[in-house]
């Protein structure tokens, strides 16, 4: 599989993963570049979510889940014996399809919750961390006067940006987003996409999306998965104008045989 010459964040080699006796990914290999947005597209059930859940070891939280193959982050084995999955997830944050702020927590506490789970919050630093994370998530101006309000008092789009702020507060290297806009209206979606444009300067971003126009808009590289196989991985500008594989062409143009 051809990968563009860039600094690799995730090196994935022969990744096979599944649940119980069901194999979902059949040997996926790709290099996800650092500080770029990589989109993962493909039909429902193709293994998109499984792939990104392997990247921060959330896949193994499902009791019957298993994984084989090599997965390296900055050259280190993600599945090495010495790796603490909790600390790994601090480096590799995740935002889900439905905004999921902690319902009993204020906006401020939601932002700090990741930090509190994985260690101590430096004394006297909380306000600075909260402000910085909310600014990075382009939410600060909208919530700075009501940081003690419940996170759930925000609109859907704001809640999703709060979840992004929560991920950013722990200072991760990678941000995984699993269909982050599927529950949002076009304006809230545009805000998230604009935010991704700003965040890609500092973070490696992997976004799973069903919306191909969104993949085309936000990503530098796109991976197309079909039934557990990586069919094509390359520059987004090529993949959506002149894909190399007829299966990609059929999928993105909405055709069937």
């Amino acid at each position: 599989m051809k990968s563009p010459p860039e600094i690799t964040a995730f090196g994935v080699q022969g990744l096979v993963a599944g649940f119980g006796d069901k194999e979902v990914l059949h040997g996926v290999s790709l290099n996800i570049p650092a500080r770029k947005v990589t989109a993962v597209i493909g039909p429902s059930g193709c293994g998109k979510s499984t792939l990104i859940r392997c990247l921060n070891r959330m896949h193994e939280l499902v009791p019957s889940a298993w994984v084989r193959g090599t997965l390296r982050l900055d050259g280190s084995d993600v599945y090495g014996d010495e790796v603490d999955p909790v600390m790994l997830r601090r480096r590799v944050g995740m935002v889900f399809q439905k905004p999921n702020p902690f319902p009993t927590m204020s906006i401020r506490d939601n932002v700090l919750s990741g930090l509190r789970l994985t260690g101590r919050v430096p004394r006297g630093e909380t306000e600075r961390i909260v402000q910085k994370a909310l600014e990075q998530a382009a939410l600060w101006d909208e919530v700075k006067d009501r940081l003690d309000d419940p996170g759930t008092s925000l609109s859907g789009g704001q809640q999703q940006r709060l979840c992004i702020a929560r991920s950013l507060a722990v200072d991760p290297e990678v941000l995984l987003l699993d269909e982050p806009c599927s529950a949002l209206d076009p304006v809230a979606t545009a805000r998230i996409e604009d935010l991704l444009g700003a965040l890609r300067e500092r973070y490696t971003i992997v976004i799973v999306t069903h919306n191909m126009q969104q993949a085309a808009r936000v990503s530098s590289l796109t991976a197309f998965l079909l039934a557990g196989d990586l069919v094509e991985f390359g520059p987004t500008s090529d993949l959506f104008t002149a894909p190399g594989d007829p299966r990609t062409e059929d999928y993105i143009t909405g055709r069937f045989g």
Binding site: E249, T253, G254, F256, G257
Partner: peptide
């Protein structure tokens, strides 16, 4: 019209086709 596709490759959306 099926652009670079074979004759059997039709659009799922028939209005678009």
């Amino acid at each position: 019209m099926s652009s670079v596709h074979g004759p059997n490759k039709r659009h799922i959306d028939r209005d678009y086709e």
